[in-house]
Design a protein around this nucleic acid. Structure first.
Lengths: 231, 231
DNA sequence: CAAACTTAGTGTAAATTTTACACTTGCGAA
DNA sequence: TTCGCAAGTGTAAAATTTACACTAAGTTTG
């Protein structure tokens, strides 16, 4: 009880889901361990700085690592097992301004969902490589990042079950089929076409334009747009 | 970018809701500032220790401050505005083992719901007083604790809307009226008696016993019990 | 140019869930 | 014995959810 504590390092980790009208992906980085030559995959994340809030830190870190900005990151929980980052001394990626390189790392996890076409991640600072990874084929990640990712996905699906979010991922003009594929992708299951359309149209969040798809190898669909005042 | 950071203090705060078959309360503590004579009200919380996990820390801290243990605490988010605890230097309650008394404090918030009759909080360590405060009359709290409490309440209600939680708050034998009052208390609104009973009974989480209430000044109600295999 | 392929688009009936609503019952207290 | 109080009970209407199959309109292929 009178032990002198060393304050923990505090980091933020960002689980950025990307949708490409087809598959759900997650933004990963490849980082190199300092002395050994091993590389490992991880979620973008880094230590916070003294005078910034957590939300602010998440946005900064994501930008510094991947070049992405303007993304709405939602915090969903903190992870703080004392040994969740055990081989911390081996790591290059804890930046030079850390004050206690030997101390544990507590991380605050953030989640976002974006359309991939709007964002082209570019590796910078200590990341060797930044890329979109298909969610169905997630590899082994560093530390407890697989767990952090899994919980983010659970939260993402929770947010989708009420059918009121996710439209922001669609292009300006989109078809009802696009929305349905979005929902099927996120929820990981098939939905009945007629029932889905009924439900979406009842919400009145989208309206038809007088345009149709072109250049598709099937009957062209009516294009819809968002009712911005409602979203 | 090359600034030497001071690692933040990390604390846990516990929002323990208590139900007394009547009202919803929250566990608060009264603590004294060091030099001045002012006292302030706050949620039970304290810094974490090096080698403990966050969940572990929450349980320890709650026990040390209030004597309560065996409570299921659920983490719901971290709060980390850089100036959320601005007058930290004035505070006695940051224990002696803190390493950076001048640094910011990031807190990880936990929530629990218990039946008050099972727990008799007793002030210990640095708390002057520990008590149950009616949720409808929450006073001004220290730091951002009003915000932390508000978000806990939102989360609590979210957990209740699916009608599948909260039974653990009831005595061993209880009436349907008790459950309804519990739900009305948590949700903060009245529910239709007949519809509520229909719904609860359909869930099949409770079964009637062959006993009835005694000593009540009205028609005695049938007592129910939990179907433990389902809860 | 006909056939094949692909997704768009559409309606209904049954089942389930939700909502609104009012009176009688049994106990203790006065 | 009457009064106050919460227990206990049923139904109809409305809303929501679910299951289900064919035609339409383009493009590509042979």
């Amino acid at each position: 009880m009178t032990t002198k504590n060393v304050n923990p390092n505090v980091s933020v980790d960002c689980v950025v889901f990307g949708f490409d009208n087809e598959r759900l992906k997650v933004l990963l980085i490849e980082q190199k361990l300092s002395d050994k030559e091993k590389v490992q995959l991880a979620l973008p994340g880094d230590l916070i700085i003294d005078d910034e809030g957590l939300d602010e830190a998440a946005n900064r870190v994501l930008f510094e690592i991947s070049g992405l900005s303007g993304i709405f990151l939602q915090q969903y929980r903190a992870f703080g097992d004392p040994d969740r980052v055990s081989d911390i001394k081996d790591l290059d990626w804890l930046k030079s301004y850390r004050s206690n390189p030997q101390a544990r790392v507590i991380t605050v996890a953030y989640m976002a969902l974006v359309k991939m076409e709007d964002f082209s991640p570019e590796a910078s600072s200590f990341a060797e490589r930044v890329f979109w990874q298909d969610i169905e084929e997630t590899p082994q990640l560093a530390f407890d990042h697989n767990k952090i990712l899994f919980e983010a996905l659970e939260r993402l699906r929770d947010d989708f079950v009420n059918y009121k979010t996710g439209f922001e991922l669609l292009p300006e003009k989109f078809t009802l089929g696009h929305i349905q594929r979005l929902y099927e992708t996120i929820l990981g299951k098939d939905l009945d076409k007629r029932n889905f359309r009924k439900k979406i149209l009842k919400e009145k969040l989208v309206s038809p334009t007088n345009q149709k798809q072109t250049g598709v190898l099937h009957k062209p669909a009516v294009l819809y747009k968002l009712n911005h005042e409602k979203v």
